[in-house]
Design a protein around this nucleic acid. Structure first.
Length: 333
DNA sequence: CGAGCTCA
DNA sequence: TGAGCTCGG
């Protein structure tokens, strides 16, 4: 999931605060949905479900997160992955294996009455499946929030839209958007601002990475940043054994990328992967205009079909009209 | 994850 | 932007 560039990028991250993040955000839908599925769970690890056993954690997450974004003058546009490129298959197979093993461990922990482990394994067993994707699109449409179907990688699509100036920045926890050329990437765009880490509670702030600042700071071109990532390893290749972020930059700066990338166990042609990052397949025709929510449709879907409490949904919906510094729009109630 | 409550 | 808790479906 993403690229292990973190150590190289740490010193370029800014924390603009919410005021500095107003604009149109291209949100990595897979990334957001995975966060909701893994995070919105009960103590024993069970996700929220409707009366028919369908998962609803992501629907709750989408309703309230989008309410928050809109209140902060951020207009979200969700970007969904299409068909993964062939060279991603081993990463996807590995994720599947990890997920299925976690599901077994979850069941086992439950039998042993170990709730803490159960929850941990349950989180790792999360799967963004067709139902999750379709129901998310349905809810977004009812909420009047635009979404875009990418032909292949969503992060490539978001990056294209940001390069075109149609969105202000890409939102994802992963760093791949920078490789795909997004001028700005925003991470940690959550509201709670709290995260448990090794037993301690840390504050988490939205952080922004500017591609130009990263490239200038590292004295690399974007193609060289891609080469650096390939040496470390990406979703598309396994990287060169023993080469971490620092060594990778050194190799690229020395101009010996093509001598060293062959040591990777991966068979993929490095030029093909470089080209994929620099010029990926994207949809160039898209409509990202947001509309007002359709409250009846949202309530039908969430309350009628999925058993949400009407009061809770209405409370969320009301916030969609209320932009910061603006009177509440209750015209549609 | 995020809402909403309690205690501070 | 307080910390800590429970609950949501």
């Amino acid at each position: 999931m993403g690229v292990a560039l973190r150590p190289l990028l740490a010193e370029y991250k800014e924390t603009p605060g919410w005021e500095g993040l107003g604009g149109v955000a291209a949100v990595d839908a897979f990334n957001a949905l995975y966060q909701f599925l893994s995070g919105i769970r009960q103590a024993d690890g069970a996700p929220l479900m409707d009366g028919e056993g369908r998962i609803t954690s992501h629907l709750s997450g989408l309703l309230f997160r989008n309410a928050n974004l809109i209140e902060k003058n951020i207009t979200p546009v969700y970007v969904f992955d299409g068909k993964p490129p062939a060279f991603k298959s081993s990463t996807l197979a590995k994720r599947r294996e990890v997920r299925e093993h976690a599901a077994d461990s979850w069941e086992k922990a439950l039998k042993e009455g170990d709730e803490e482990s159960a929850r941990k394994y349950a989180m790792a067993s999360s799967k963004v499946d067709a139902f999750v994707i379709d129901s998310a699109k349905e809810l977004l449409s009812a909420l009047g929030i635009a979404w875009v179907q990418a032909p292949e990688e969503g992060e490539a699509q978001s990056s294209y839209m940001a390069q075109q100036g149609d969105v202000t920045y890409a939102v994802s926890q992963d760093y791949d958007s920078l490789l795909f050329g997004a001028p700005e990437l925003v991470r940690n765009i959550t509201v709670s601002g709290k995260k448990r880490f090794r037993g301690k509670v840390l504050s988490v702030y939205p952080e922004r990475l500017n591609l130009e600042a990263v490239l200038t700071g590292l004295s690399l071109t974007r193609e060289e940043l891609v080469q650096t990532a390939l040496l470390i390893g990406t979703d598309y290749n396994s990287g060169v054994p023993g080469v971490g972020p620092k060594t990778a930059v050194k190799i690229v700066r020395e101009g010996t990328f093509y001598d060293r990338i062959g040591e990777s166990e991966n068979a993929a042609d490095p030029d093909q992967l470089i080209h994929y990052f620099l010029d990926p397949p994207v949809e160039t025709s898209y409509n990202i205009e947001n509309r007002s929510p359709d409250p009846d449709r949202v309530i039908d879907l969430l309350c009628g079909k999925h058993g949400f409490t009407q009061e809770r949904v209405e409370a969320g919906l009301e916030r969609f009209g209320a932009k910061k510094g603006q009177a509440t729009l209750d015209a549609w109630f």
